[in-house]
Amino acid sequence: MINKRKAFTLMEIIIAMALMMVVILSIFMLNQTSNRSSMDAYFETLCFSLAREPIEVFRGLGYETVLAISKNHKLCPAPYKIGEFTNITFDPKLALQYPADAESFQRRIDLTPNSSGKYINIKVTVAPRNMSKAEVWFRKESIILESNIVWKPKW
């Protein structure tokens, strides 16, 4: 007895597979782009947070303390260093905690006092570390955030 049911034709399968390959490839590429954008956005957010943090801390220290730090970098509080890139490390024992992904970044703080105007320009540069996850996903070379810390009376 002859099975009269016909199977899919080879041609039919080939066309379907080709179509599927093209479309899936496109979808994959689109997905990859989206994924990269998401990660980029994520790291950029993290990056900005890391840049904003020392500005807020130094503003809290006040003009006179920051001025003293700008003259003597050794006075700078522990997690920060002036004038050089410093790796941000994740250490659960530290009082100041960062997300694990923050380890992908390094940060540089520059202080430029303006004695005549009695203010200090603080510039924070955050950039991905070499061979880090952020270097893969983060598109920009670095993020720079600036602010001025102005003299205030103490009372």
């Binding site: 689109l30 997905n31 782009t33 989206s34 994924n35 954008s37 998401s38 980029d40 956005a41 994520y42």
Partner: peptide
Amino acid sequence: HVSSRNAQ
């Protein structure tokens, strides 16, 4: 994609 664009 739209979501990631929005995030960005």
